[in-house]
Amino acid sequence: MSSLRERSGAAAGLLNRLTSGTATIFALLVVVLVVITILNPTFARPASLMAFLRAAAPLVVLAIGQYLVIVSGEFDLSVGALVGAQVVFAAKMIDGDPSRTWPVLAAMLVLGAVVGLVNGLITTLLKVPSFITTLGMLLVLFGAVRLWTGGAPTGALADNFRTWGRGGIDMPVLRQLPWALVIAVVIAIAVGLLMRAPWGRTLVATGDNDTAASFAGVRVWRVRTVAFVLSGVLATVAAILIGGFAGVTAQVGDGLEFVAITAVVLGGVVLGGGRGSMIAAIAGALAYQAIERLFTQLALPSTARPTLQGIIIIAAVAWAAREGSRGPGAANTPAPDASADPAPA
């Protein structure tokens, strides 16, 4: 008897997990990929899968960085402008000369870390809400880069820079294993290990309840600042991949912050912090990219895409937020309690 009950309890637990916010995103990802494959069987070929993953890699890297910041209870709205600034910076500094690529890559990573450090310190030490800090940083980066280049990007990226975004290792079956994918996987593994390490635990604890975390001995400001620094560095990596893949334009990076946040939230990561896994954030990024791919497959007019995107985003988050699918602490966001209207007297 008791074992039966236990088993049914376990089954219920499994069911609960399968329908939870995290599982939703994997289901969505699989469904979208299957639909694309049905519409276009060649999509399942290794070569086109690799092409898909190469295009998705920058967003995956951005989503990992955004995940770190969001799970700690903050926002980073500056990543789009940072990506744009970095690509333009790289083009101007390299100016087509391959010998300058490595020093410039190093400078970009330092710049990304500094931007993250400034974001983090202003947010934690000066107590400016991160929404405002990173919004201000967005304006500063956007303006500074255009001020510096006089409006339009100048210079060019060298081929040995662009290879990170568009090149790869030649292979028999896959034809080519994209560097972008390799980099994304390495970063995912590294950050995954970091999230399992004490620092990752304290990061999530900080996002869940920073006062409790600080009572438990966490130096909240340091943990969050490191998260911002990592976000800046990862946005830089994404910039390197995007610059290589797509080249330099004035619009590069525009609106990318919202895409990254959307990907993370699609993955069931709760805005407000303390909840959600990195793997799910990555799945969110892949699902976002897959949905875009599906729109291309359906030959939808590009103007109509935002509408569908908006509906899918809201529906996915509403599905993940429906009664009972989120753990305690989900109420960090203002929305959940609002529905609990007291019955009219």
Binding site: F258, I261, T262, V265, V270, L271, G272, P301, T303, A304, R305, P306, T307, L308, Q309, G310, I311, I313, I314, V317, A318, A321, R322, T333, P334, A335, P336, A338, S339
Partner: peptide
């Protein structure tokens, strides 16, 4: 209603609404 009834975070709910309107207007 999406924020209170469906309990979607306001950031996402209004971002999504913006996208929906943008798509409609552009089309």
């Amino acid at each position: 209603l999406v924020i209170t009834g469906l309990r979607v975070n306001p950031f996402i709910a209004t971002l999504g609404m913006g996208l929906i309107i943008k798509g409609y207007l552009d089309t």
